Simulated assay, not measured.
Amino acid sequence: MGLTPVHFFSHGSTMMLGEESTSGDYWKKCGDEALANNIKGVIIMGAHWDATGDAIEVSMNPTPGKSPVAYVHPSKYVDYRLEPDLKNGERVLKTLESAGFNVRPNDKFEWIHDTFLILIRMFPNGCPPTTIISMNARFDPHFHMRVGSTIRPFRKEGYLVVGTGGAVHNLYRNVWWPMLMYRNNFAQPTPPEGWSLEFRQSVEDVMSNNRGPALRRAITRLMKHPQYRDAHATDDHFMAACFVAGAAGDWEDEKEEKGRLGAETWELTNMCNSQFTIGSWGRAVAAH
C-alpha cells in the first residue's frame, strides 16, 4: 500500500461537533479517502488525556463511554458507536514497550471529545477500529515526537495516523461572549490579534516547507517561537503536532508530499483551527 497520509487536525471548541464548517467538510473528505483506500484502522493521539510520571497509556477499554460535550446537543454524538481496536492496541503497546517507553494499558478510559469529535466528522457512518495513545504530562516535544516515530511503521500496514490538538489554542485569550450569549462560536466581532496571526502563519510555514527530519526539527522548534506561549497557554494541544511530526518525519518521508493546509476555521476570535495533511494516497484516489 505504501505510506498512508498523516493528519494534524485542530479540533477547536466542542461546538465544532455541533456546527457545520469548512474544517468539518475537510475531515469528512479525509475520512472518505481513508475508507476508499481500505484502511485497517486509526491510531490517534488527542490533547485531553495524559499520563503522569514518565508513562504513556494506550486505551484498552472494550466498551468505552463518551465524556459529555458542552454546548452540543446529545443527538450529535450519544448514539455514535465507538470501535476500540483492542487487537491493534496490544500491538501498539508491545511496539512502544520494545522501544523503551514506560507504557501501560488503560482498560477504564472513557473517550473524550478531542478524539471522538474528529472520528464522528470523518466517519459519520461508522467508527473504524481505533487505538488511542495518551500524551505524557511532562509535555516534552521530543518525547512525543519519538512516540510518533515509533508507531510510524503502522502506516505501511494501512493504519491512518492522526494527531488532534490545535494550531492556535489558548482558552484564556479567546473572546467568549458571542458563544456564551448567542451560541455563536464563529462570530468575529474583531479581527484576530497579531500574536495569533503570527503563530498561525508560522505553523503553516513549518508544515508546508519541511519534509522528513527537517519537519521534526521545525515543529519542535516552534515551542521556542516568541508567540508560542500566547498561542498555547498550556502545552497539551501542541503535543499532537509533535506526535505527527514523528510519524511523518523519517528520511523516507522526504519523498512524500509536504504538509498542506486543507481547511481552516477561526473560532472565538483568536482560536485558529488549521487542518493539515502530510503525504497523499496517490493520484487515482486523490482525483476520486
Rank of each mutant, 00 (worst) to 15 (best):
S75D: 15
I56M: 09
S196F: 04
F101H: 07
D85I: 05
E83N: 15
T190F: 13
G65N: 00
L180E: 13
R121W: 10
M145P: 01
D235F: 13
N270W: 08
M135V: 09
W281A: 04
G2T: 14
A240S: 14
A218I: 05
A245N: 11
A70G: 12
K29R: 15
A70N: 12
A241E: 02
T131P: 09
H73W: 13
K87L: 08
Y80N: 13
A286G: 06
W111L: 12
G12L: 07
A36Y: 07
G163P: 07
N125C: 03
A286N: 10
S13C: 11
T131E: 12
K28C: 11
P62Q: 02
N174A: 13
G165C: 00
E57R: 12
N185G: 13
T22C: 07
Y228A: 00
L268G: 04
F186K: 09
F143C: 10
R152I: 06
E157C: 14
N37F: 05
A240W: 00
N106L: 08
D107S: 03
R260T: 14
N61L: 01
G126N: 12
N184D: 15
S274H: 07
T234E: 11
V147Q: 10
R183W: 10
W49Y: 14
P189V: 13
A51R: 06
N209Y: 01
D25L: 04
G259T: 06
L160I: 02
A248H: 10
P5Y: 00
S202H: 05
G194R: 08
M15R: 14
G2K: 15
E257F: 10
G158F: 05
K40E: 15
V42W: 06
H11F: 09
N125F: 10
P213W: 14
F243T: 00
W195E: 11
M1T: 14
H7T: 11
A240N: 00
D205Y: 01
G166S: 09
L160C: 08
N37E: 03
L119W: 09
I112F: 07
D205R: 05
N88A: 00
D54L: 09
